[in-house]
């Protein structure tokens, strides 16, 4: 990698090889395993990260969440999801 990844609505986010998503029965939550780190995801982050599979653009991903959670304005979902994934991208746990 030579440049910082900045996510936008056309980005197709996915997890890099060293970050592995799985549901952990012992802790009853989704987790990302990464080198010497474990991210335990809350229910909402778990919903989002399951859509981060390298097939959806960020825009499509937000559309799907907006349909599912139709009480929340799409703009709010977009802002929150982008911030969450950018934060993971800055730590190297999301690529596009």
């Amino acid at each position: 990698m030579s440049e910082r990844l900045l996510l936008n609505s056309t980005s197709v986010p996915r997890l890099p090889r060293h970050a592995k998503l799985r549901f952990d029965r012992a802790r009853d939550c989704w987790i990302i395993n990464a080198p010497e780190r474990v991210f335990e995801l809350d229910a909402i982050a778990g919903e989002v990260i399951q859509l981060v599979d390298g097939t959806r653009t960020l825009a499509i991903l937000v559309d799907e969440l907006a349909t599912k959670y139709n009480q929340a304005p799409r703009a709010d979902i977009e802002r929150d999801v982008t911030a969450m994934l950018q934060n993971l991208a800055d730590k190297g746990f999301v690529i596009a």
Binding site: R27, E36, R37, V38, D42
Partner: peptide, 21 residues
């Protein structure tokens, strides 16, 4: 020693019988 668990309680997590995992 320097591994981190993020979004986890600083005290670690426990199972339904309150055992540390």
């Amino acid at each position: 020693a320097n591994a981190q668990t993020e979004c986890a309680a600083a005290t670690g997590t426990s199972d339904s019988r309150n055992r540390l995992i």
